[in-house]
Design a protein around this nucleic acid. Structure first.
Lengths: 253, 253
DNA sequence: TTTAGTTAGTGTAAAAATGACAATAAGGTT
DNA sequence: AACCTTATTGTCATTTTTACACTAACTAAA
């Protein structure tokens, strides 16, 4: 096995045999605690048995990684139809010690194509049954992860990368509504930004900027049964968004 | 071989065997023609023999993809010490027909981790000898690529992705100086933005914004032997840049 | 039926940033 | 010395941002 001894110059120049996994960083907002959360599952087997881990798994031979991410997400968390975007490919030499042994006896390395997903509150309920090797899919606040006893593999690095990407991306691509229901109020959208970016925003100014780009479409409806003035409901106008992308419009918020 | 027939449900659920390649999109600026260029090499063997292709190759078993990119870049183009960043992982099912035959007989798929690189004019001279299977490493203007007779594999998609990433990134991360010498004038930096973004900028306003963020450090030196007022030379202050990143500073230009 | 409480939404004035462009500076060339 | 060219500074009207005051609309309690 490739791991077991120093490689000679010659052996090194054989093209590597790889296994591919996908790992998904699934983000959701908890409005009641004002926190950004993500889904972790408990690993059912070694290595890292009983450690927390990102929902992930091996990619089949005739399956694209995006499809694998969807399959695994459905199986391990019950989530379907989520915003999914490729994040980064993690390939550190010793990131997964299963390479070279067991079912992976004949592979040199196991690398992971990470995806990040955004889910709305209605989708928050994750299956607790735990498909496959995973049990106890659970939401954790990103800020509390340091309290976990252990995280599998290089998942801490993957999560850090994903959080940075989400923060960076939110500011210049309108993805905030992916974390909301289809209909939402401006205040709710504002809260998305506040929670993800980690600081409060002025409602009046946020409103002006959010409406200026004309990708939020006011509905006929208003909020109902709230003990105060009901807010206008909006929805994201994807068609209009695509038109603006064509023109190279700047969505900074 | 996995490609040769329809897979049964059972066969599909065997974890895939993958080969990994890296492909590099190497960007450089041609100031004399005001164009954004990238390096292509001619493929020496089938498939796509004699077609143009991104410098790339297989990853070894005990080599990280970034190191592979550096190795391959050095071998095929003679370039070393360049700004290199992981771009995206391309894994469409039929992107590389070599999977399942020849040296790749026992693999299901060949996926590519693409990197993009930025090189300065001094680094522009690429080796014409062509190491390995590649010959004729050559610079092409991004805008003229449609005139090429053929591009290998999914390299057109990779290039499109890379150009979008470069344009997007330039606007909010100060990477422009990676395309310049260590010492540069503000006008040169402005030209970087003009060429990459594809439109002209007002010198006075560009200067104001570029200097405002305090990451450009004026040197003692000035331009020499030009037939007009010599311009102040600057260098990028990386330390200062890192400090500002810490504070969450916005580098939009 | 008021009135108080609460959040939605509008308005505004000072400060900062932008965009267009004029004016001056500093070299070399003729 | 006069001229040419690009660098650099300055200016000003306009737009955008920021902070914050003010009005609107609804429920619930009195």
């Amino acid at each position: 096995m490739a791991n077991s001894k120093q490689l000679t110059k010659n052996e090194e120049e054989v093209f590597g045999r790889f296994r591919l996994t996908v790992d998904c960083v699934v983000f959701g907002l908890d409005f009641s605690s004002s926190s950004l959360k993500l889904v972790l599952v408990r690993r059912g087997e070694e290595p890292f048995k009983d450690c927390w881990s990102l929902p992930g798994g091996f990619v089949y031979g005739m399956e694209e990684t995006r499809a694998a991410a969807q399959r695994i997400l459905a199986k391990k968390t019950g989530l379907g139809d989520v915003f999914l975007e490729q994040l980064y490919t993690f390939d550190a030499l010793k990131r997964d010690e299963r390479a070279g042994s067991g079912l992976n006896k004949d592979v040199d390395r196991i690398i992971s194509v990470a995806y990040f997903a955004l889910v709305s509150p209605a989708q928050h309920r994750v299956e607790q049954t735990g498909g496959g090797n995973a049990t106890d899919a659970t939401w954790f606040a990103v800020d509390d992860l340091s309290e976990l006893d252990c995280l599998s593999f290089d998942h801490e690095l993957i999560i850090e990368t994903a959080v940075n990407r989400l923060r960076g991306k939110l500011s210049y691509v309108p993805i905030g509504f992916e974390l909301l229901e289809r209909k939402f109020t401006l205040k709710e959208l504002q809260r998305v930004y506040e929670i993800v970016l980690g600081h409060n925003l002025d409602s009046s100014n946020f409103r002006r900027r959010a409406l200026r780009m004309k990708i939020l479409e006011p509905l006929e409806e208003k909020q109902e049964s709230v003990a105060h003035r009901p807010a206008q409901l909006y929805r994201f106008n994807e068609k209009r968004y695509r038109e603006l992308v064509e023109k190279g419009f700047d969505f900074e918020l």
